[in-house]
Amino acid sequence: MLAICALVVVSGAVGSVQVSLREAAHIVLGHLLPGMPWMSDGSLSRLQDQAVWQFRLPRALLAGLAGAGLALAGALMQVTVRNPLAEPYILGVSSGASVGAVLVIVFGSAALGGLSLNVAAFVGALAACVAVAMLARKNGTLSPTRMILAGVALGTLLSAVTSYLTISTDAQNVVSVLFFLLGSVSAATMSSLIGPAVALLVSCLIAAFLSRSLNALMTGDESAISLGVNANRLRGLLLVVASLLTGAVVSVAGGIGFVGLVVPHIARIMVGADHRRMLPITVLGGAVFLMTADLLARTVAQPTEIPLGILTAFVGAPFFMWLMRQGGAEKAGFGR
């Protein structure tokens, strides 16, 4: 939590409008505690206040919520299919959200019944979740292998649809489409935090309640059933929770990969595979990871901003390959 608070302050101080770390902290605390004296001493300009409170703070908070949500979704997905390489995007949920968003960008909100970009992205993610569940079900059960295959196939199909829409639209829309597909929190507002925050809170409560069942599912279906866990029903619930959580994040932050893949893996190496300890570390680690990535995205190539999806892939892919080289999967409890 201290790291998250520190990143919020640092994020508030980074930008074209000069604000010191102390001033950024004063602005944030001044809005949260309006009776405190530092907001009325005249030392801070209105421009500084707007830069921190209206633009930089929502951006930092959305990055934290998105990182925490994607990391938690990845952890749940890895348990669902008992594979350390699994993540929400393998189900095609991100591709479904992208199709919904691109439809709004290309054809306009009016052509889709007045749906906003965020709502259309969420609807697309939900539709992809339902489609994967239907394709993966056989004889009344959800097969982990069928879930992965269905997700890959559906994701490929939806990605093809997105690519076609992108190349067939006007040139001025291509930049907007690509920026959304690669992920960004630059357009964050306080209102855009509501959806991911609610989804993360509900998902955290469900995950905490099911932590013992998740431990049982990690040992295999037979062991889980012997402990009184309905493996098929639990997989279905985890699929829905992970997919909806991913959809809520993608609808406001776009496509950001590797968070749900790397962070849960590192958390298991740090504290073990017991989900009562691992899940809180995963949520906090995901927030720290993406908030740090957003800071780098804003500063590494100034004045150009790097899309988050590019940066997380550039950092996450080599790091994850290094972990695998060191036997990280076995240490995380998946190699038994």
Rank of each mutant, 00 (worst) to 15 (best):
R82E: 09
M321G: 08
A293D: 01
L2E: 10
G151M: 08
S45T: 15
R212Y: 13
V250C: 12
C204H: 10
L178I: 14
R336W: 00
R233D: 14
E222G: 06
R212A: 15
L57R: 03
W322Q: 08
I194N: 09
T189R: 10
L21H: 13
G30M: 04
S109I: 07
N139W: 03
A24P: 06
A66G: 13
L112N: 04
M321W: 10
L33F: 15
S213P: 07
F55V: 14
T219I: 14
L200W: 08
L57P: 03
L239Q: 08
I256C: 09
V14I: 14
P37H: 07
G327W: 11
C129Q: 08
T292N: 03
C204W: 10
A231M: 13
A60H: 03
L112D: 08
D41C: 01
Y164K: 00
L279F: 01
V152N: 09
A6E: 00
A153P: 10
V161W: 11
Q302W: 06
A125N: 09
Q54R: 12
I148C: 06
S143W: 10
G69Q: 06
R268N: 07
V271W: 10
T145W: 05
I225N: 13
G335L: 15
L126H: 00
R325G: 04
M134P: 03
G100R: 03
T299L: 02
G100C: 09
M77F: 01
A66K: 02
L178F: 06
A68T: 09
A128F: 08
I281A: 07
H26C: 10
A197S: 15
S223Y: 06
R298Q: 05
L181E: 05
V271N: 07
V81A: 00
L244M: 14
I4C: 06
L157D: 07
W53T: 10
M218F: 05
R298F: 02
G309R: 04
L217M: 15
F334K: 10
I310K: 06
A120V: 13
S109P: 09
G247L: 04
G35D: 15
G183A: 09
F179K: 06
A128K: 02
V132Q: 11
M278Y: 04
S43Y: 02
L217T: 03
G285F: 04
L210T: 13
L290V: 12
L44R: 08
G151H: 07
Q18S: 15
V17M: 09
T166V: 05
V288L: 05
G124S: 12
I105T: 12
L214F: 13
E222H: 13
Q302I: 06
V17F: 10
V104H: 01
S143M: 08
L29T: 07
L158S: 05
V185E: 01
I167E: 14
D49R: 07
A3L: 15
